[in-house]
Every structure is written in structure tokens, then in C-alpha cells.
Design a protein around this nucleic acid. Structure first.
Ligand SMILES: [Mn+2]
Ligand SMILES: [Mn+2]
Ligand SMILES: [Mn+2]
Ligand SMILES: [Mn+2]
Lengths: 223, 223
DNA sequence: TCTTTTTTTTAGGCTAATCTAAAAATTTAT
DNA sequence: ATAAATTTTTAGATTAGCCTAAAAAAAAGA
């Protein structure tokens, strides 16, 4: 029965993520960067993943997931995001604290565990950071793509997710009073530094820097 | 920061278990048996654990946990048993299904996770098999030691735990209608094969073989 | 085009955790 | 007490996953 190491599973997840942020072919150096290893180590691993037919690999040409590789990547991502929901909703962790734990929990090998967890959590569609949870069948739902920084003055939207997942950014949002699901109305945008003045319920006014606004994903306002 | 591999943690747990079922010195062969590896591999690992001062090891003389080794073993056992409670009480798994998953979950590295889990589960004192859960401070509570097979006719007791943790045994109990916490009254013991006739509420009569009775732990009946 | 720079791969090594086969120590039996 | 049987350790390999240094290929630039 094909079983995979933590390392292999992490590579697949990272190849998936890199392929969906930029060109579809993922480079050896890009992987060395995100795995915090050397390019030579990545080449080693790519050969092993290619042997297992989890990736398409041609020397010097970068790498692409096979159907089986993508299926596996989405399964790991599903587990990661469901465990994050558990940690935040059930155990009361902050959304800035859960990534490392989920990084380990995602490798627990039991499909039944994941499906029971999903039921226990009431089939959540998004993780605590607003990222969509892949379906058990291996389909990744669409994520919002509009950023707060894209809005014009007087427009209203709902905060749906973050692009920057760093604890520093998440804690900054906590201190600002910005939470996912909250309705924001843009009152003014500075022509100088693109910073925004926004209002959130109940009538509070906040200043949001461009650096923050371009890392916040938004969608249509709640009715 | 001292971190330990899954393998090391499993060895410590197994050394603890073996030391508390028999003589205090654990033999290389006994460990080879329970780890399903060869004696030579065990010797290798014992040297590594001794280097880290987690065990006392003298060639040919067997092995004993150091204070630090025991502290760590109890920490892993605590995690294992708390995760089992989670899987049974919250996710609805059967007590015969959870061991393998807990065997992986016990290695997730986060003290805060375990303590929050403990709180979420309402500080359980026993796991689904009736085994006591070590305290956060690293103390192993006493376990019941009397067996159902030790009782005499007309005696009444409360079922508290199992000695055999195999799925086959646990499923046999499920099919018999015997559950932990249930009150059993011994009505008759066969002089021939030591099998018992017992009654459980609400007035049901069961036949219990000696093989089952000597694997069931009991305590004083509930008032 | 033809260097120069950057990226990627190869070559060779290391460690943890396993193995088999053989040697050494201990225990049991005559 | 000595020989035989058992247990344990040593010796020498293997595999996954990593490393550095050097070679090779591809991309960029003059
Ligand atoms: Mn991971
Ligand atoms: Mn997330
Ligand atoms: Mn384990
Ligand atoms: Mn248990």
C-alpha cells in the first residue's frame, strides 16, 4: 500500500502552492527556498517523487504535479485546514498560533479520522485564515481574489481572508480590530501612500496601510 | 532545544511499559519483540538513548529509564491516552479503533495543545480502556489491579479496565454487552474451566470465560 | 554571437534507523 | 566445571534525506 513520508507530503503541498502562485512550472530554486534546503537536496527529492509518478520532471525544465500528485496534495491541504479549524474553534487557539501544529497534524494517516473531524466541525468551508477547504473528492473551491486595496472610496465589502499568513500580520489585524467576516466601508484613500480610512461596525473608523490592504481578501458585503 | 524522534519516544514508552510488567530491568530481546525489530537494532538505539541520558544502560545488563527518560515516557503516555479519549468521546470512534491513530498523534510536539485538549475533554482521569492518564506534572495514578477472575461467587464489582488491548478482545466485549463502568455480580464459577456466570444490569445473565475474566480489571461497585 | 551570470545537476559524504551474519558474553544443563 | 544453548553485541551494509563543492546547462547581456 503506497505510503508517503512527511517530507514527500510537504513537497507535494509546496509544489501545489507554488504552481498556483505564478507560472505552472515550479523551479528547483523556488522549492529550495520554501523547503529551506539546498537546490541539490531538492533535485534528489524530485527524482524520488518522479519515480513514484507524483510529479512530471524533466531535467532543467521544472516540475509539475501528476493527477495522483495533485490528488495527494489536496488531501494534505484538506487535513491541514480542517485541523486548523479544530484548533481555533474547539481548542480556542488564536489564528496566529495554529500553523505549526497543523503542519504536523496534516500527516496523521487516517481518512476516517479526517472525515469524522469534518463532521465534528460541521463541515466548514473555510479555514481560520479564510482559505477554502478542498472537498473529500479532491476539488479545491475557488478562493476570493479581490483585495481590500482594489476597492474605491464609498465601496463596501466583507473581509474574507488573508494573503500574508505570518503571525506578525495576523496579530496586527487582531490589534487593529479587523476580523474575518466583518464588513468594511472605504471612506477615503490617500493619493500619497494609498493608505485607507475605513469604517467597520459599529461605526468604528480605522486607518489601514497599503501593505495591510493588499494582503486582505474581500468579497461582496453580507446582506 | 532537546527534541526527540518518533522512534526514540516509542522506545521510551515501551521501556516504561515493560519495566512495569515484570522485572525492572528490560532486556534487549524483550524490546526487539515489542518494537518488531532485530536485537542488533535495539542495541544501536539503546546506545543512542544512553548518550542522551534517557536510560541507564550497561552492556548485557538490560536497561532502565533515567528520571528524565521516565518524565518523557509519561508525557507521551499522557498524550496517547488523551487523544484516545478525544477520538472516542468527540469523534465517536470505537475503543477498538483508536490505538493506531493515537500512536501517531502522541508525537505531535506541543505542550499547549495537550493541555488545551485536556481542558476540552473535561480533564478525564482514564482513557477509553480504563488506563489512568498521567498528570501534567508527570505522575502516573494507580491503576486497579484486581481482576474479574479474582472474584468469588456472590461478589459484586465495577468493570474498570482491560488488560488485553487487542481489537479482537475489545470487540468480543462489545458483542457480549460488557462495558466499562458496568456493575457485575458473580453468580457462579465453574470448577471445571473457571468460567463464570455473571449478571449485569438490568438483570441480564452472561457467561464469561476464564480467558476473558482474567483480562478484565474491576474495582469496588458504584453505590 | 559569444561571454558572463544564474540555475540546475552530479559527485561524493554524512547521520539516523534499520538489516544480516558473525563474534562475544551470559545463562543453563549435564 | 565444562559444554551447550541463549542472549547480546559488534561489524559491515542499506536507505532516506540532507549537505558542500564542482560540473554542466540555460539564460542574460554586451
Ligand atoms: Mn507538514
Ligand atoms: Mn490556514
Ligand atoms: Mn507512537
Ligand atoms: Mn488506551
Amino acid at each position: 500500500m503506497s505510503t508517503h513520508s512527511f517530507t514527500e507530503e510537504n513537497y507535494l503541498k509546496l509544489i501545489y502552492a507554488l504552481a498556483n502562485r505564478g507560472t505552472n512550472e515550479v523551479s528547483t530554486n523556488a522549492l529550495a527556498e520554501v523547503t529551506a534546503t539546498r537546490a541539490a537536496s531538492v533535485t534528489d527529492m524530485l527524482k524520488r517523487l518522479a519515480d513514484k509518478e507524483l510529479i512530471h520532471y524533466r531535467k532543467y525544465q521544472g516540475v509539475r504535479l501528476t493527477d495522483e500528485g495533485e490528488r495527494l496534495a489536496l488531501k494534505i491541504i484538506r487535513r491541514h485546514r480542517l485541523w486548523e479549524v479544530f484548533l481555533v474553534d474547539k481548542l480556542g487557539f488564536g489564528w496566529d498560533q495554529v500553523h505549526e501544529m497543523a503542519e504536523e497534524l496534516e500527516h496523521i494517516r487516517s481518512d476516517e479520522l479526517v472525515e469524522r473531524l469534518d463532521t465534528f466541525l460541521d463541515n466548514p468551508q473555510f479555514d481560520p485564515h479564510g482559505d477554502p477547504i478542498p472537498t473529500p473528492a479532491g476539488h479545491m473551491p475557488d478562493a476570493p481574489s479581490q483585495k481590500l486595496a482594489d476597492l474605491l472610496p464609498s465601496e463596501t465589502a466583507c473581509l474574507l481572508g488573508v494573503l500574508d499568513h505570518s503571525a506578525a500580520f495576523l496579530q496586527h489585524l487582531d490589534r487593529s480590530g479587523l476580523t474575518l467576516g466583518c464588513t468594511v466601508n472605504v471612506s477615503e484613500i490617500s493619493a500619497f501612500d494609498r493608505s485607507m480610512r475605513v469604517t467597520i461596525p459599529p461605526g468604528q473608523t480605522l486607518f489601514v496601510s497599503y501593505d495591510v490592504a493588499r494582503n486582505l481578501l474581500v468579497g461582496p458585503p453580507k446582506p
